[in-house]
């Protein structure tokens, strides 16, 4: 279904853009390319997934720690968190990827995969930190007072009472960030990791059939995102995030 829709759209586009040449793209040609590159793209999809999952797990840890730093009463930790979030949100992701892979080679040499994963983790971590901070602050302050009145220390109250409620409340925004993270992983193509976007670039360059291969890449991303969304919705339902 989706494939056909894509094909129709790009036939229309190609015809309207270049009526003189009267390029006619046949559906069977497109399907042929799809099948021929299927193995390659499945491998590339695996890489995209591996990158996304590893970097998002790291990003969640970074996000949680930075959120707690930003909320702590220690002004040094505060300041550190503010600078981190400011620097990451203030510069483009592609710059951060390049900086980690090419920029600091005289300090530490990272493989393309780890440079990409770490860059994605640090980048998403800054946004996730703000998501967690907002969620923690949205918990009624009576919860902390009740926990303290029962003799809990700050950290125990945070762990047992505040965080479980806050994490649940963060899930819708977190899901959104995960989807952004998955798509942003395409930028590591520029440091030579063979993931979906990189493969589509090289196929397109080799065959001069740009429209075809970028459309194919789009299909893979779309399917991945649909699966992601499905899983996130399931988790939201399961945890009943609407309830306090």
């Amino acid at each position: 279904m989706i494939t056909l829709l894509y094909v129709k759209i790009f036939i229309y586009l190609e015809n309207s853009l270049d009526t003189k040449r009267k390029v006619v793209v046949k559906i069977d040609k497109f399907i042929n390319s799809f099948i021929q590159t299927f193995n390659g793209f499945v491998g590339a999809t695996g890489m995209t997934l591996k990158l996304t999952i590893i970097s998002l797990i790291m990003a969640c840890f970074i996000g949680l720690i930075v959120a707690l730093m930003k909320l702590s009463s220690n002004s040094f930790l505060n300041w550190l968190a503010v600078i981190y979030i400011g620097a990451i949100r203030g510069t483009p992701l592609i710059l951060q990827i390049m900086w980690l892979y090419f920029g600091i080679t005289h300090i530490i040499v990272l493989s393309a995969f780890w440079a990409g994963s770490i860059a994605l983790a640090i980048h998403n971590g800054a946004y996730i930190a703000e998501i967690f901070r907002g969620a923690i602050q949205s918990i009624d302050k009576g919860q902390m007072e009740a926990a303290k009145s029962l003799g809990m220390t700050n950290s125990l109250a945070m762990r047992r009472i505040i965080l479980p409620q806050a994490l649940k409340r963060a899930i819708p925004a977190l899901g959104n960030q995960f989807i952004i993270g998955l798509k942003d992983s395409s930028l590591v193509a520029f440091i030579g990791i063979t993931e979906i976007f990189n493969l589509s670039m090289s196929e397109a360059a080799a065959t001069f059939r740009q429209l075809e291969f970028y459309s194919i890449a789009g299909i893979y991303y779309l399917v991945l995102i649909l699966i992601f969304t499905f899983i996130i919705n399931k988790i939201e339902k399961k945890l009943d995030t609407g309830r306090r």
Partner: peptide, 15 residues
């Protein structure tokens, strides 16, 4: 605080 119980106006039960 362990020895001082407190009951709040808005209950503050853990939901």
């Amino acid at each position: 605080r362990e020895n001082i119980g407190m009951v709040f106006q808005h209950f503050n039960l853990f939901p």
